[in-house]
């Protein structure tokens, strides 16, 4: 394993929610979007971030980049305190941070200015960051276009002239223009056609391998997470429930939520035996989450203890962290816990 690129320490972000209406707005609670999250991303490694709607994936990604201000906690980039530096650090460090950390979004339509040509879109970061001499801009734009699988003549066109997959390539090229080391990719393939997704996924795979860029790959598509990440963090209502090496977690998940989540995905193999754990109830609202383990109302194995005591995220195996009182019982070869009927 290489050096640590990103370290997230006890990050917290709540959003207050109020009753509707202008007069007499009352606070009804807090959305626990990011609730004491700690993570590490190694240099050149991709971390997948998975979980269902509203569990805080996007907020976590944006907070790491300081696009959303955290309530508390710290983020380090190459050991540099990100929030501290951006607030009061020396100018050149600020610039370095802004350039080194980028984000790409789910919707390649919304994130590209329709009035700008592809050339202008990709070269805009050069204008902003001034990290490359002017006479090299043109050369760089074309090499970025080629890098993401587009061609030189595309430079003079406008975003609406491209397909969804091509637009996502343009936004990737733009993110790459600052020479980043870390990119938060928030559902970058969800809006693309199935056959085009693979094009963008392999592009991300290659960028990681060849340019040593690390991605925080946010997705609810677990199959693509398995494909392009080395580690994975599973989030449920703002908390990390399981975190560790991707293959290990997909082969042997040790948190009941991860177990259920992975078992929910249909496999393209008609002969495979289906061993599914169907969770009862709905994905709960992250406003004022349940007591104890916040998953206990849906967990088939919940006990009295789970209702009262919140499990800590603990290291159950080297590098494999699980937040469940009974993680050890789910290891292969252990006697499984009896399930509780809900």
């Amino acid at each position: 394993m290489g050096k640590t690129l990103i370290e997230v320490v006890n990050l917290v972000k709540y959003f207050a929610v109020y009753t509707r209406g202008i007069l007499l707005r009352r606070k009804i609670g807090d959305v626990h979007a990011v609730d004491d999250v700690s993570l590490k991303i190694e240099e050149g490694e991709n971390l997948g971030l998975v979980g269902e709607t509203g569990c805080g994936k996007t907020t976590l990604g944006k907070t790491i980049l300081n696009l959303i201000e955290p309530d508390s906690g710290k983020v380090y980039f190459e050991g540099l305190d990100v929030y501290e530096t951006l607030r009061s650090g020396p100018e050149e460090k600020k610039k370095y941070l802004r350039r080194s950390m980028q984000m790409i979004f789910q919707n390649p339509y919304g994130s590209l200015d329709p009035r700008m040509t592809v050339y202008d879109i990709i070269s805009e970061p050069f204008v902003i960051h001034r990290h490359i001499p002017r006479d090299e801009w043109e050369e760089r734009v074309y090499s970025l276009l080629r890098l993401v699988g587009l061609e030189d003549y595309h430079a003079e066109r406008y975003p609406h002239e491209f397909s969804g997959g091509q637009r996502q390539r343009i936004s990737i090229a733009r993110a790459l223009a600052t020479d980043p080391k870390f990119i938060v990719a928030d559902e970058p393939v969800s809006s693309l056609d199935v056959s085009v997704r693979a094009q963008v996924l392999t592009l991300l795979e290659n960028l990681q391998k060849e340019k040593k860029i690390s991605f925080l790959y946010i997705s609810h598509d677990l199959s693509s997470v398995r494909q392009i990440t080395q580690s994975v963090a599973v989030m449920y209502l703002g908390k990390i429930f399981e975190y560790g090496p991707t293959d290990e977690i997909f082969e042997e998940p040790l948190n009941p939520y991860t177990i259920a989540l992975l078992s929910a995905i249909p496999v393209p193999d008609p002969e495979r035996k289906i061993n599914r754990i169907v969770l009862p109830g709905d994905v709960p609202s992250p406003i004022n989450p349940p007591s104890g383990c916040r998953f206990h109302p849906r967990c088939p194995w919940a006990t009295e203890k789970c209702k009262k005591e919140e499990p800590e995220l603990r290291e159950v195996r080297k590098g494999h962290f699980v937040a469940c009182h009974y993680a050890e019982n789910f290891m292969k070869g252990e006697k499984p816990l009896p399930t509780v009927q809900q």
Partner: peptide, 16 residues
């Protein structure tokens, strides 16, 4: 298409 049960070599379909 990637699979949940194993890592594989993805072969994109060219074009759109």
């Amino acid at each position: 298409v990637p699979r949940i049960d194993r890592r594989k070599e993805l072969k994109p379909i060219p074009g759109s």
